[in-house]
Simulated assay, not measured.
Amino acid sequence: MIQYKTKEEIERIRKAGRIVAACHREIARRLRPGVTTLEIDRFAEAYLSGNGAKPAQKGYKGYPFATCASVNEVVCHGFPRNIPLREGEIVTIDMVAELDGWMADSAWTYPVGRVNPDMARLLEATKFALFQGIAQATSGKRLGDIGAAVQAVAERENYGIVEAFIGHGIGRRMHEDPQVHHTGKAGTGRKLREGMVITVEPIFVTGKPHISVDADGWTARTFDGSWGAQFEHTIAVTGDGPVVLTG
């Protein structure tokens, strides 16, 4: 069942989202060759705590960290590790902040130092697809419009979409209805209504979009070793159009 939010509840999610966005900006300043994702995880946990929030991912179904840190061919849910990042790699940092019982979720893929043109293009295309999807999240449109917009970018740029991981509703719980797919047909699916709060979070890969999950039960990586990027915002569907709550 979809939990429609009031304007006051959306504002509470926005407050959590501002903390997430500010934390991402700080991470962007710290990510460079030689830094480890475990250091970034510890920083993020301290940052959230220092701003009155808590990392909702830590402890969720046994997940042991404050963030997911996914490097190169790991497309999502990667464990932070004590391994220095290298020039030219890419890393996705995904986090959920809970503030006074309300949650906001955002993931961003960062270049480590200078990346090659192919990786730079992957990042730009995935980010562009995120905002194309968000643009469709207006009252009266349908979930399929979001998926179709994201899919159109992937097909035009010749990237695979990892369909195993999707967007979702969010609020008092990390994962609520509805499910938000990143492929679809325009004009199909549940109608979007004012008060919905959802995430849009496409994952594009340079190769085939088939994934396997490591023995830890979390780390998802491509079968063929191709690299992947993910960009995610939490957004509200309002009468005035989509509003990014994690920007």
Rank of each mutant, 00 (worst) to 15 (best):
V115T: 11
V75Q: 08
G167I: 01
V180W: 02
A137C: 15
H182M: 13
T206A: 10
A69C: 13
Y47W: 15
H210A: 14
L122Y: 09
I2M: 00
G189Y: 01
T219P: 03
R190A: 04
K208Y: 02
S49Y: 06
L245G: 00
P178Y: 06
E45C: 14
V91L: 09
S49A: 14
H182K: 13
L48T: 05
V162E: 01
A56C: 05
A120K: 15
T67V: 15
A135N: 14
P242Q: 02
T109W: 10
G187D: 12
L192T: 01
A104E: 11
Y63D: 08
A129Y: 09
G228Y: 11
V74E: 05
L245M: 03
V74M: 06
V162Y: 03
M95I: 15
A66K: 02
W218E: 00
N82I: 00
N158Y: 09
E194A: 04
A46M: 09
T246R: 07
E8S: 11
D216N: 12
K185A: 06
T37Y: 09
G189T: 09
N82M: 11
Y159D: 06
G184H: 07
A28D: 12
Q57N: 13
G217M: 07
G62H: 10
F223I: 13
N72Q: 07
A97H: 06
I2P: 00
I10N: 00
I166N: 13
R86W: 06
G34V: 03
A164C: 02
T206F: 01
M103F: 05
E163G: 07
V74N: 01
P242M: 03
V162M: 09
F65T: 01
A120W: 06
H24Y: 04
W102F: 15
R142V: 07
I19A: 07
